[in-house]
């Protein structure tokens, strides 16, 4: 094992890259290579970010975003897993419905945003609908494929063991579909966050997206705040993705992909 493989070295390298990027940003704005009317300096942005972290307004915005995202994800994903499972278990239903689902999956969610605003206005409901709608179709398809992807040997084994009904579903069908559903959920969580921010930014519902918009409208003096909010949405995205990746790793520890990951880490 060389020094490059050690955990400390890897973490150190990553911290160094981030520090170099921040220093580069500071240098470019201090030397006025970056236009100061569009780009605040790194230190000004960080100072603003620090101030924002102590303000109740920021945490209220974060809460609004998390609430819209979480509810939309919960509703959209629950429906998708139920509908996807039912369609996956019934060949006739699957063949009948799949063209409609494939079509609706390709409709960009942004295209229905104006419709949602007309129906619900700049509200939480509008956000929740948009997120639920956006994550429902891809996760439904993912679930259908997962439920249908039971290994033939596993299917024979289930028949030989005379597993039926709920016991078969819990012991065979669901675990076989789990890797597909987990990937679908991880993607849905990230897509859901993007849709939440869009619903706030364009639809005007309260949350981090709206905070970005209002700080931009407040003029150049509020520029560091805009950048701080953008940074916060980035951090939220990273947190969401790593949380779901961690859950996937825990729940699917038996799966080949995770076994290899564990062996590599060891």
């Amino acid at each position: 094992m060389t020094i490059v493989d050690t955990g400390w070295f890897r973490i150190g390298a990553r911290v160094l890259v981030v520090a170099a990027l921040l220093a580069g940003w500071q240098y470019l704005s201090a030397a006025e290579i970056l236009d100061t009317t569009s780009f605040p300096s790194m230190t000004a942005t960080m100072a603003e970010a620090g101030r924002q972290l102590q303000s109740a307004d920021l945490w209220l915005a974060v809460w609004e975003t998390v609430r819209g995202w979480g509810l939309g994800l919960l509703i959209g994903c629950s429906l998708a897993i139920v509908v996807g499972t039912l369609l996956g278990l019934n060949r006739f239903a699957y063949l009948s419905v799949i063209p409609v689902i494939e079509f609706l999956k390709t409709v960009p969610v942004i295209a229905i945003l104006p419709l949602a605003i007309v129906v619900w206005g700049a509200t939480l409901d509008m956000k929740v609908f948009l997120v639920a709608f956006g994550v429902f179709w891809p996760l439904t398809i993912q679930t259908i494929y997962g439920v249908r992807a039971v290994d033939p040997v596993v299917r024979d084994t289930a028949a030989v063991l005379r597993l039926r009904g709920l016991r078969k579903f819990l012991n065979v069908t669901l675990p076989s579909a789990a890797p597909f559903i987990a990937t679908g959920l991880r993607v849905a969580a990230a897509v859901g966050l993007i849709l939440t921010i869009i619903a706030e930014l364009i639809g005007g519902a309260p949350g981090l997206g709206l905070s970005i918009l209002t700080s931009v409208n407040a003029g150049p003096s509020r520029l560091p705040a805009t950048y701080a909010f953008i940074l916060f949405t980035g951090v939220a995205g990273v947190l969401v993705t790593s949380a779901f990746a961690y859950l996937e790793q825990r729940l699917l520890h038996w799966h080949e992909s995770q076994r290899n990951a564990a062996a590599k880490a060891a």
Binding site: V154, T157, L161, N171, P175, A178
Partner: peptide
């Protein structure tokens, strides 16, 4: 079956695999 690596459910421990026919 010949292919034990697929016929044993990888998501169940040895105990739980052997328990399946007993539960049925």
């Amino acid at each position: 079956f010949q292919d034990y690596s697929r016929s044993l459910m990888p998501w169940l421990t040895v105990n739980r695999n052997v328990a399946l026919p007993l539960k049925v």
